[in-house]
Design a protein around this nucleic acid. Structure first.
Length: 384
DNA sequence: GAATCGTGGGG
DNA sequence: TCCCCAAGATT
């Protein structure tokens, strides 16, 4: 972490003034923003900032609304069970955020009496709040002269000054440059103004420089190669991993599920049973890893059927290809240790990450499980 | 400092 | 189809 005292414009420089004026006219209307002049609820600012980490505004909006209907303040969220939070977060990705969100709510109640602290340092000490988010909350919720630097601001600043050093090494320099522009008053508006500028004008590709309040002083624009900034270090791509996933359907309309380990990839989320996901994948061995399902005394193993094709999914650091197996078993089939039967009618409420919904949807689309169960899930829309 | 950690949309 | 990357944090 970098907690250095930053130099700020004693009086707003012309650049700062111009951007704030632009923001007053062209700011985005977003669900977590309040009308100018009103003080935002720190809980809502925090909730939106956590959700917006590496996540688009469009994706966040419905989740934000749903969270507020369930948990209107930090005490309500702190009192919730983690499982319920994970269920509401399912599909949004980066699930450590949900675990930290819950831990943070409890920390705010226990350490701070249910009120968010207003200093960057205290915010930074809370779970899931890093340098960016601490500065963002301080500036937006408490109007403190802090300088959050997100991907938008990195791009805007890198272009404005034609920063040649590639990211992520340039982060320090970009933060210094952004700090120097941050006004003592309206720091929150200034930060949001740069984000809005980056999101609507100074976009990664095909920026609308003609509409930019900063284009006259923009070094990258003067050079004529705006899109070349920010420079970035090339990133290695992860090797393909493979695995098998097993979708067991019971004739009474239930699906076999289990919980993933609390930490790590998709930590704490729900899944259908799967093998490990490895670069070295042996389909024959994988098949042997299918859950052993038998019903009552008859003790006949259910047959697993390979669904043609695969399910592909791309995680941040590796692509995944899953072979899918399906089985239909009698209603009295019991669940193996550590697994449970979940009603398909309530599958939408399960903490299933997107990759698992894809897997289940694949079986549904295949549509050859051959009984009423198929018809039941084929009618469900929440699998997409 | 480098790896890990999701997902969906846009060009 | 492929590639980029979005209001980053944690270990």
């Amino acid at each position: 972490m970098r907690q250095r005292s930053e130099r700020r414009a004693a009086i707003s420089c012309p650049q700062t003034t111009a951007l704030l004026a632009w923001y007053d006219r062209h700011h985005r209307r977003l669900p977590w923003r309040v009308v100018p002049g009103e003080h935002p609820d720190p809980y809502r600012v925090w909730l939106s900032e956590i959700m917006l980490q590496q996540t688009t505004v469009k994706a966040v909006a419905p989740y934000y609304a749903r969270f507020l209907t369930h948990w209107g303040d930090v005490r309500a969220l702190a009192a919730a069970a983690l499982d319920e939070v994970l269920k509401s977060w399912a599909g949004l990705g980066y699930y450590a955020r949900a675990r930290n969100l819950h831990a943070c709510a409890r920390a705010v109640v226990e350490r701070h009496g249910g009120e968010f602290p207003n200093s960057e340092a205290e915010l930074r000490a809370l779970p899931g709040i890093g340098a960016y988010t601490a500065a963002a909350i301080a500036a937006i919720a408490f109007d403190a002269p802090a300088t959050p630097v997100d991907g938008n601001i990195e791009r805007v600043i890198a272009r404005l000054y034609a920063v040649d050093l590639p990211l992520p090494d340039a982060k320090r320099e970009i933060h210094r440059l952004a700090s120097a522009l941050t006004p003592r008053r309206r720091a929150g508006d200034f930060a949001q103004a740069m984000m809005d500028l980056g999101a609507t004008i100074c976009t990664p590709r095909k920026p609308a420089c003609a509409l930019c309040p900063w284009h006259k002083g923009c070094a990258a624009h003067a050079r004529g190669d705006v899109e070349a900034f920010p420079r970035r270090m090339p990133k290695r791509e992860g090797a393909l991993r493979r695995g098998a996933a097993f979708v067991a359907l019971r004739t009474d309309g239930c699906l076999l599920l289990r919980a993933r380990p609390a930490k790590g990839l998709l930590g704490g989320m729900t899944e259908v049973p799967t093998t490990e996901w490895l670069e070295e994948f042996d389909e024959r061995k994988a098949r042997a890893g299918a859950p052993h399902l038998s019903a009552g005394q008859s003790n006949r193993r259910v047959a697993w059927r390979r669904i043609p094709g695969t399910v592909r999914h791309v995680f941040t650091h590796f692509p995944l290809e899953l072979s899918i197996y399906a089985a239909v078993c009698p209603a009295r089939t019991s669940a193996p240790d550590g697994m449970r039967w979940a009603a398909l009618d309530h599958i939408a409420g399960e903490a299933l990450p997107s990759v698992m919904r894809k897997v289940i949807a694949k079986v549904v689309a295949d549509g050859r499980t051959g009984d009423r169960t198929t018809a039941k899930i084929q009618n469900r829309k929440d699998l997409r």
